[in-house]
Amino acid sequence: MSVLRGFLWLLVFLLLGQAIVLWLPIALPAGVIGMLLLTLWFCQRGGMNADVVAVSQPLIAMLALLIMPGVVEIFFVAGRFADQAGAILTALLLGTLASVASSLWLMRRCLPPETSHE
């Protein structure tokens, strides 16, 4: 029962997010707004709701499963952009490696080491 009650809480915050998105000038996904609202609620009550914790563990473990259908689609649309494939792949592979390298470098420079909890 705890899991179902937690799921209802998640749905309530998702629905709240969907309502708030209507008022925002930019297109943010309702899930992200719901996540931020839920975090704020936890902060306000000074702890987490046990039901939400019970449902979040299996749901987060399922994330990989939930994004799979999107991955399947690539194999069926790849042909449409075949003539641009070289440019697209080079941009994605090199661009992502470059951005990973620069963000790791930046973070290492700016983040203090873990031992000093300041």
Binding site: F7, F13, P29, M35, L36, V52, V55, S56, I60
Partner: peptide
């Protein structure tokens, strides 16, 4: 379920 799963990320 991606919607509720995104909201659940509030826990971590």
């Amino acid at each position: 379920l991606l919607g509720p799963a995104t909201v659940a990320l509030a826990v971590p």
